[in-house]
């Protein structure tokens, strides 16, 4: 506790360096044993000191679902709200308190079903919230109904002969909703989830992180081919800014674009070299590449993990504050008496 760091946005106020333990609350964690949420929580607590924010300036806001309990376990300010609406509370909080770091913790049902509208609009406004969506492709807290990301035909308690609803691709939604930071990671892939959450935390603007999370009770193994260390290298594509898209245990496969269609190619076969491969550009202004990547899925493709898109735009709170500053600069700070006695008045008596 002797080191000091500088808090972003707080001038040069020196702060004690915090550790993971500082972010662990006194509440007993109550997810099912073996749930992927434990890993997400631990890694969230782990990366939190990196941002240099004083603990009291960090707020976790959640909706309803298993993910919704996460704020109780973070020793920061926290607000467990109502189903699907966490982005709306986060928007009001961030708009009125721009200096706060606001995280939104949500799930596939919370964010994409009941709260779909709020996700769309908080993303397009570039609201500076870090939204982390735990995607387990099932409703866990209500015990096993189909979710908007459940695969077509999935048999669940609410769809005994299979769903008939086309699932949403969360990152495709986020990209078309104009999110300025879009990423995917996996609950138990420690190094990757830490890198991804760190990048999300440093982004200013609407941040959408999909965490492939295993519900070992109602949908165990949903992400098995990408989640298990064994075989993962062949089934995922780790996106790295500025680098060609290569994957595979032997790093011998890559992604090439033919027109607007990606394809998997074997390096060294038919004269294919690294130079033929797509190079990842997470900062591309045009969202087309990010969108194409978001459509790539197993078994035809490796599942991309990492930052799909990271672009800079003024944030909602900055623009709102800017309008207020402009108004004060132009008219001076509001004068209540002048306002009340303004317009057409007359005297009586």
């Amino acid at each position: 506790m002797t080191d000091i760091a500088v808090a972003p946005g707080n001038g040069a106020a020196p702060l004690p360096v915090l550790t993971r333990k500082d972010f662990v609350s006194d509440q007993e964690v109550r997810w099912c044993p073996g749930c992927g949420d434990y890993s997400i929580l631990a890694n969230t607590q782990k990366v939190m000191p990196d941002f240099g924010y004083p603990r009291e300036n960090i707020v976790f806001i959640s909706g309803i679902g298993c993910s919704g309990r996460l704020p109780y376990y973070m020793n920061t300010y926290g607000f467990h709200t109502i189903h699907g609406r966490a982005p709306t509370l986060a928007t009001g909080l961030k708009a009125s308190r721009p200096e706060l770091m606001v995280w939104v913790i949500t799930g596939d049902g919370d964010a994409l079903s009941i709260g779909g509208n709020h996700v769309l609009h908080s993303m397009r406004r570039n609201t500076d919230i870090k939204l982390v969506m735990f995607n387990n492709r099932i409703y866990g807290l209500t015990k096993g109904q189909a979710s908007p990301t459940s695969e077509l035909g999935k048999k669940t308690k609410s769809s005994p002969v299979g769903t008939i609803d086309q699932p949403l691709v969360p990152l495709s939604v986020a990209i078309t909703a104009e999110a300025t930071f879009v990423a995917r990671t996996i609950d138990t892939y420690t190094e990757h989830i830490q890198d991804t959450l760190t990048a999300a935390g440093f982004h200013r603007g609407s941040t959408f992180v999909e965490v492939l999370q295993n519900c070992n009770i109602f949908n165990d193994g949903a992400w098995a081919p990408f989640r298990e260390k064994d075989g993962r290298d062949d089934n995922v594509l780790l996106l790295k800014h500025g680098e060609p898209m290569i994957f595979g245990k032997d790093r011998d496969k890559g992604i090439r674009l033919r027109g607007f269609t990606p394809e998997v190619v074997q390096l060294g076969v038919d004269g294919v070299t690294e130079a033929d491969l797509l190079v990842h550009d997470e900062t591309a202004e045009d969202p087309t590449l990010a969108y194409i990547l978001s459509r790539m899925w197993a078994p035809r493709f490796p599942v991309p993990l990492g930052v799909f898109r990271r672009v800079e735009r003024p944030t909602h709170d900055q623009m709102l504050q800017g309008q207020i500053d402009d108004a004060i600069a132009a008219k001076g700070p509001g004068d209540l008496r002048g306002l009340l006695f303004g317009g057409e008045t007359w005297q009586a008596g």
Partner: peptide, 26 residues
């Protein structure tokens, strides 16, 4: 705005009150 009034035209009625509760929390 020169009175520091922040107005937010929300995407729906629920977001309108949700944002107000969020602001109150702050």
């Amino acid at each position: 705005k020169s009175f520091g009034v922040r107005t937010f035209q929300a995407e729906d009625e629920i977001a309108a009150i949700g944002s107000a509760v969020g602001a109150a929390y702050g």
